[in-house]
């Protein structure tokens, strides 16, 4: 049955696919993870705060974004960000935001909700005595978070954070709907141009599969290595 297929199309185009498409996907993944973990950690601290309004705002934000499909969020942001930006700086016309910036912002804001819940669990997993001891030594809230609680929480949660990042890596393919040149978008353009849809999508699937398997395996190994002895 493979007689009708022409896998030569992969040999002809793999460099563009990998060095432009996949590189773009990885770039968005890494930047969105970094931004998402930072924002997510702040949201988690807000959710756990004893200042009720802070915790309500964070809970509302997280629950709202988690109940909307990512595709919709990408769409909304793509169309809304220029207007929101204009509103913030008081410009009469929509500001120009590149599709890349818009997509990256979307992923940071969206993934932060998931990272938030992970970090919240992580912070809560640290025995309260640790914070008491840090307070008793005179550390203030930010110092005890930065030096005592968060380093331990981050370490305990690294495997889960990375697993979420694997999901993010796959989710980045949704930028297809706003035509950003990620791995999937470029592959489908080539596929349509050359009329080799099946070959191309098979190749894309295999690459995703291999990368995710490698990452999962690595996360598993990491899990046992970084456990803190107590």
């Amino acid at each position: 049955m493979f007689a009708n297929f022409d896998f030569d199309v992969i040999a002809r185009t793999w460099q563009v696919l990998i060095f432009q498409g996949l590189a773009f996907t990885l770039q968005v993944t890494v930047l969105a993870m970094a931004g998402g973990v930072v924002l997510g950690t702040l949201l988690a601290m807000m959710r756990l705060s004893s200042i009720k309004p802070l915790s309500w705002v964070a809970a509302g934000y997280v629950n709202l974004l988690r109940s909307i499909p990512l595709v919709l969020v990408i769409f909304w942001f793509y169309f809304l960000v220029p207007y929101i930006g204009a509103w913030i700086i008081g410009s009469p016309t929509p500001i120009k935001v590149g599709a890349f910036t818009s997509a990256l912002l979307t992923f940071i804001l969206f993934e932060a909700c998931y990272y938030c819940e992970i970090m919240r669990a992580g912070i809560q997993s640290i025995p309260s005595g640790q914070a008491s001891a840090a307070q008793a030594l005179g550390l203030n809230y930010w110092q005890l978070m930065a030096h005592v609680v968060l380093p331990q929480a981050l370490r305990n949660m690294t495997p889960v954070l990375l697993t979420q990042t694997i999901v993010l890596f796959q989710d980045v393919s949704l930028v297809y709907i706003i035509s950003l040149p990620d791995f999937v978008t470029i592959a489908s353009k080539v596929a349509q141009r050359d009329g080799r849809l099946i070959e191309m999508y098979l190749f894309v699937a295999v690459v995703y599969l291999v990368i995710c398997l490698i990452l999962s395996y690595w996360v598993k190994r990491l899990q046992s290595r970084i456990a803190i002895a107590r």
Partner: peptide
């Protein structure tokens, strides 16, 4: 609090820091 030392039932050393770092942090 920094002027009052406190010792806890369950020690509460910071497990991610070496003994020297535990002593120096605060």
């Amino acid at each position: 609090r920094a002027r009052i030392g406190m010792v806890f039932q369950s020690f509460e050393l910071f497990p991610h820091l070496s003994i020297t770092r535990n002593l120096a942090l605060a």
